[in-house]
């Protein structure tokens, strides 16, 4: 069974007219346009695209904070719009754009999310300690999030995503604001979790290094539509100097019908 299947996903936005706007326009514009794809167990799929291509909009629909205009999102064969809370038990998310509660300390924030995922206290405390150690946050665990730097705040957000042993981890710009050492730790953590637990990752990133190092497959969005759907081999070959290029078949995995295979 596919952990994630997206079929004909579309999102239109209506311009925000505001309370006192004189504009009468109700015209809607598409931000995500009829997208279909699926993720396999234990693969890392990277999402690329220029600013405004629709990456964040797609991510927001996948975590349930944005309602699609049409189409379906199925996790593990179940409709996400109907079973959001139950399915979210197996999904975690981190974004460099969203901070955790500023009035809580690092440890309080993590304990809160451990309870959200119904983790037993002993298990979550051990995992929190281990993760904080690997992210060099142990000395700051009683610091309020409002007092953290942008990099520390992003580290915490990623740490939160790795706290429950989710089957799918969705990451939006996970390495933004991070130093090189932490970036390397994040990439190692992603690969380790995939190899040991078969976790599926879906990562939106502008970083070519993230994509080339992590992505098994790469989806490129352009103006809300899938422009390319390539394998890692293809991308590696593309970036080689012309003399070293191998002759490989372009594996264009465009819009295969995933529902039939699930």
């Amino acid at each position: 069974m596919y952990p994630l299947v997206i079929k004909n996903l579309t999102k239109y936005f209506r311009p925000n007219r505001g309370w006192f706007s004189s504009s009468k326009s109700n015209a809607e514009f598409p931000v995500i346009n009829n997208i279909s794809f699926s993720l396999k167990v234990g693969e890392i799929v990277a999402l690329m695209g220029s600013n405004g291509a629709g990456k964040s909009t797609l991510m927001h629909m996948l975590i349930g904070i944005l309602t699609p205009s049409s189409g379906s999102i199925n996790y593990f064969g179940k409709d996400f719009s109907r079973y959001r809370s139950a399915l979210s038990q197996d999904i975690s998310f981190a974004s460099s754009y969203f901070k955790l509660a500023g009035s809580l300390t690092i440890i309080q924030n993590l304990q809160f999310f451990a309870q959200m995922y119904s983790m037993p206290k002993q298990v979550s405390n051990k995992k929190i300690d281990d993760l904080m150690l690997s992210f060099n946050l142990s000395d700051h665990k009683h610091k309020k999030v409002s007092d953290l730097s942008a990099g520390q705040s992003n580290k915490l957000s990623i740490l939160k995503a790795f706290l429950p042993n989710s089957k799918i981890v969705l990451l939006d710009e996970p390495t933004a604001f991070l130093d090189q050492q932490t970036v390397a730790s994040v990439r190692t953590l992603i690969k380790e979790q995939r190899d040991k637990m078969g976790t599926t990752f879906f990562i939106a990133s502008h970083s070519q290094e993230d994509i080339s190092e992590l992505g098994d497959r790469v989806i490129t969005l352009e103006q809300g539509s899938i422009k390319e759907f390539r394998t890692r081999d293809y991308l590696e070959n593309k970036s080689c100097p012309p003399t070293q290029k191998k002759t490989i078949k372009l594996d264009l995995l465009d819009n295969e019908d995933p529902v039939d295979k699930s």
Binding site: F98, L100, A101, G102, M116, Y117
Partner: peptide, 18 residues
């Protein structure tokens, strides 16, 4: 309001919390 100002609203409602 606190969740909105600290940008934590998304984290909270992207979790299993109903």
């Amino acid at each position: 309001f606190e969740e909105i100002t600290s940008q934590n609203l998304v984290n909270i409602f992207a979790s299993p919390l109903k």
